[in-house]
Design a protein around this nucleic acid. Sequence first.
DNA 1: CTATCAATGAAATTCATTTTCATTAAAGGG
DNA 2: CCCTTTAATGAAAATGAATTTCATTGATAG
Lengths: 176, 176
Amino acid sequence: MELTKIPTLPKFTGGESREERTLSREPLDKSAFKQVIRKMNLKVTDQRLLILSALHEGRTHVTAQEVYEIVSAKDPEIGFATVYRFLRTLTEHHFVTEVRMGGLPARYEMTPQSHHDHLTCVSCGKICEFENHEIEALQEKVASQFGFELTSHVLELYGVCPDCQKRKKAKASFGN
Amino acid sequence: MELTKIPTLPKFTGGESREERTLSREPLDKSAFKQVIRKMNLKVTDQRLLILSALHEGRTHVTAQEVYEIVSAKDPEIGFATVYRFLRTLTEHHFVTEVRMGGLPARYEMTPQSHHDHLTCVSCGKICEFENHEIEALQEKVASQFGFELTSHVLELYGVCPDCQKRKKAKASFGN
DNA sequence: CTATCAATGAAATTCATTTTCATTAAAGGG
DNA sequence: CCCTTTAATGAAAATGAATTTCATTGATAG
Ligand SMILES: [Mn+2]
Ligand SMILES: [Mn+2]
Ligand SMILES: [Zn+2]
Ligand SMILES: [Zn+2]
């Protein structure tokens, strides 16, 4: 295996092939979103409701810009400062989780009930989610060996997905 | 354990307590650095030699700005574009490794002979390095379960170091 | 020594994100 | 419903890291 940290990931400009998990949860009506906002002691506004529904029904691992574009379609008046601001607030209150890959713009997803980490294709940007209790336990073990009280962790795996492996083999044999 | 990704780390502005591993390797004379540069098919310049020696003898996990300040002391004429450029080149050639924590500026270290990951104190910024073969093996296992060919990974643990735990307990009992 | 082409540094540029600030609007009494 | 009090909003400017541009300088092969 490689020893490198960040493989200078492609910029995944369009959401082309990044359609890994489109949320199809229970529709979760507007009043549920209001509860979320009130739990943070914030005022309920249309903008915040729009942002929450974008996060809830849209695809996961969206950037702030993507969220802005989604809500802009519904309300062209909305400002991107509002989107950034509210995403930060939601993150601070742990309602959404920020995922960062290398130096790329942050991506957001509704905080999942059960923790997971990410396996990302360096070629097409596809993101798979996984959960591995053995790894989690070993992380705790490492931290305690250093006397640390573990508060969080980032585990991101990078590789080439099956599709991209095929695509590369096809291209290689064609060039021959 | 927390489920959060990045705990909005403090900015570690000064290198205050971040003195985890100061390199005291064999002095590695100038001609060794020249070899490194030539191996990349680049021209040997004073600037590049300065940057390499800063990386080699200084503390590890330095930002580009920190490297710039170190080499500026020796040669005030050097431009920060040169530092950024060469750090990128060195990273691409795997002579240095880029470490990123959340949205903070990238940090660099000479690529170690044996791979390691990082355990960072969210309170003071201290960084511990560790190596855990069980975790590495499990990562491979996860990737192969998804049919991915693993190319790299990022594992960063965040927690409170023993010193900061003490400091917090002291402060807590004082406030009482 | 010279010619060639890479390397440099200053300044401008990009890009994500944050901040500022004047304006608007939510919410809790009255 | 109507104030009043704040918080929220959006446009624009600011920030901060990193990159690019481009005219000038310098390394090195011959
Ligand atoms: Mn996820
Ligand atoms: Mn390290
Ligand atoms: Zn792929
Ligand atoms: Zn600490």
